[in-house]
């Protein structure tokens, strides 16, 4: 990276001192802010040996918390993905009254504190709340049960998929969909064979972010779940509980599982992306017409 021509003045930001300082600052920040805490989790979780770690994980309450977190994600993420795609489609492909308003409303969960969302749900579904008595008499439990946890998680993560898709779909415009429709394609056909293939990486990224946030959500869920150990405790809530009980090893063990879930989602995303990108690179192998044109998958940017 050194200046190949001696005596030539450096371009902007090209001076070695500047470059080293900048890279140094970034690396130091990453180490202090991101790597170190994660390393501590791993170290503390295993500090008392593998057996203690395994026992902490195998504790029924912890296992239940893991299960609840995964179930919540399995419900909330697909619903929010469908919502995000529908919202992005509606906002970018149709003109309707209230479009701009909808765009702002979708962003609200981003800017609002999750705890506010939790309290709001309490007022809506709680016993003293709006629908509380009606739900109670119908014997439907929303709060302090799985539905409440899912709803709160969905509120918090509602914008993730839509926010990834809207700028992309806006940039792509409506031409492709109009072309498909003018060629006789139905709405579904247009969506699945034209729109979806062109937004899939953004969609995937939105889903990964949404999933990470659902699994990690603390504030909103802690209000509506009631923190009942072994019943309505999700993994983040369980970690806090263990920590307050001075069960350090258990807390760190559970935290390591949560971190692991996050890392697995990220790895899955990278792998999927790489597979897609690899295909994109391979498929346009012009020299080899043997490549089956029917394995349509990857986007070729022009």
């Amino acid at each position: 990276m050194s200046n190949p021509v001696k005596g030539r003045p450096p371009r902007v930001g090209d001076a070695p001192a500047f470059r080293r300082t900048l890279i140094g600052i970034v690396l130091a920040l990453v180490a202090i802010v991101i790597i170190a805490p994660l390393a501590v989790i791993g170290y503390q979780a295993f500090s008392q040996g593998l057996q203690v770690y395994a026992a902490a994980i195998a504790h029924p309450d912890t296992l239940h918390a893991i299960g609840l977190t995964v179930v919540t994600a399995l419900i909330a993420v697909p619903i929010n993905t469908a919502f995000g795609v529908a919202a992005a489609w509606a906002i970018t492909k149709f003109d309707f009254w209230g479009r701009r308003f909808l765009l702002v409303v979708i962003e609200i969960p981003f800017s609002i504190s999750p705890i506010v969302a939790g309290v709001a749900y309490l007022f809506v579904y709680g016993l003293q709340g709006l629908f509380g008595p009606a739900l109670d008499s119908a014997d439907i439990k929303i709060l302090f049960a799985l539905p409440g946890i899912v709803l709160a998680s969905m509120f918090v993560t509602a914008p993730f998929v839509a926010r990834e898709l809207i700028p992309l779909m806006q940039a792509q415009g409506r031409d492709l969909e109009e072309a498909a429709t003018s060629l006789g394609a139905s709405g579904w056909r247009t969506f699945f064979s034209v729109t979806l293939p062109n937004i899939r990486w953004a969609l995937l990224y939105g889903v990964v972010l949404c999933n990470a946030r659902v699994m990690g959500e603390f504030g909103a869920v802690s209000v509506v779940s009631g923190n009942i150990r072994g019943q309505t405790n999700t993994l983040p809530l369980h970690i806090e509980l263990l920590y307050h009980d001075y069960q350090t090893a258990g807390a760190f063990a559970a935290a390591s599982i949560l971190a692991l879930l996050a890392v697995v989602t990220l790895i899955a995303k990278v792998l999927l992306e790489r597979q897609g990108a690899g295909r994109a690179r391979r498929r346009p192998g012009l020299a080899a017409p043997a490549v089956a044109p029917k394995t349509a998958s990857a986007e070729v940017s022009s």
Binding site: E178, A179, S186, P197, A296
Partner: peptide, 19 residues
């Protein structure tokens, strides 16, 4: 438009980039 039976050519082609 779907049933109108017209062929429409767009200014910026609107070819499906993934096909």
């Amino acid at each position: 438009v779907r049933d109108r039976g017209v062929g429409f050519v767009f200014q910026h082609y609107a070819l499906f980039p993934h096909m």
